[in-house]
């Protein structure tokens, strides 16, 4: 058999799969809007140091002469009570928010998946009961309340708020994976691989897990927004990132007592949070449509 022919076919199949993905995804214009918003946000956050007009305004900077200027050509979103450019701080704030998301999700998703797969595969054993009852306990309390409680015990800081959010978040992934795995493990292809003697670990992580990736990926996308929201909420009540770090939650908090006259100080960071959440939710909905198998 010709190697080149096979490689060529493989490439074409891959591009076919991508085209199919895009076809399904792009059927809804809302998903496209979501994709545009979320990628823009990510790109802005990544390139923040190169694009913001006043990088020096981010942390320690005081210029009372320009304090509380309303939005104008120089400062398109105005300035805060120390004269710092709100736009620059928002862009950097997004950077912190996304850092929080990346750290939290990269702790939470693998942990949740591994525990969920194990519990789902060993359903009705002591391991299943242990993991699922612990996660029940966490799920019973709203994540924000839980995170607040944990953060209050720890010292307020960026790292500790990451820990608090991660601790409240893993059970959701564990449960999602658990339910998918425990139904998939009765499929004939899993039973077949057990019968021929494929090792348990391979069955769990090579045969079963790839089939649950769709819902996990969808949830991860939706969670980008929610993790940012919880992180911002922690900062807002002073349990997360501390000033002068330009966290979106902290910024809303700092500007809150200036409302309603100097509204731009807190409204714009709040609006940013809203837009990010909206964008990732729309994107997640689009992904869900793609992963839901249709007959046609």
């Amino acid at each position: 058999m010709n190697e080149l022919v096979i490689t060529g076919r493989r490439f074409r199949l891959l591009s076919d799969r991508f085209k199919k993905f895009w076809f399904k995804f792009s059927r809804s214009s809302l998903s496209i809007i979501g994709l545009i918003i979320s990628t823009t946000c990510v790109i802005l956050a990544v390139l923040a140091p190169y694009i913001v007009p006043y990088p020096e305004h981010i942390e320690w900077y005081i210029d009372y002469d320009n304090a509380l200027r309303p939005p104008n050509l120089e400062h398109i979103l105005g300035t805060d009570q120390y004269g710092r450019d709100v736009f620059s701080r928002i862009i950097f704030g997004m950077r912190y928010s996304f850092t929080l998301v990346v750290v939290v999700l990269s702790i939470v998703i693998p942990t949740g998946i591994v525990l969920g797969v194990l519990a789902g595969y060993f359903k009705d054993t002591w391991f299943d009961y242990l993991i699922m009852r612990i996660s029940d306990t966490f799920v019973a309390v709203p994540p924000l309340v839980m995170a607040l409680a944990i953060a209050a015990v720890l010292k307020p800081s960026m790292i500790n708020s990451m820990i608090a959010v991660s601790l409240t978040w893993w059970p959701w992934y564990a449960r999602l994976t658990y339910s998918a795995v425990s139904s998939l493990k009765n499929e004939y292809y899993i039973i077949y691989s057990e019968v021929i003697g494929v090792s348990k670990l391979r069955v769990m992580f090579v045969e079963i897990l790839p089939n649950c990736i769709g819902p996990i990926l969808t949830k991860a996308t939706l969670d980008v927004g929610w993790v940012i929201l919880v992180g911002a909420a922690l900062s807002f009540v002073g349990l997360g990132a501390q000033p002068p770090i330009p966290d979106l939650g902290t910024m809303v908090a700092e500007g809150a007592h200036l409302l309603p006259t100097t509204w731009w100080v807190s409204i714009f960071p709040a609006l940013t949070i809203t837009i990010i959440i909206l964008g990732f939710n729309l994107l997640g909905d689009g992904l869900k449509d793609v992963f839901t198998e249709e007959k046609y």
Binding site: Y188, Y192, V195, I196, G197, E207, P210, N211, I213
Partner: peptide
């Protein structure tokens, strides 16, 4: 193992007996 190797099976619904993601 040499016995499980010699007894193989084909199921009714190929869609559920072949792993869809591989």
């Amino acid at each position: 193992k040499n016995i499980t190797r010699e007894i193989q099976v084909v199921f009714q619904d190929p869609a559920s007996s072949l792993n869809p993601s591989r």
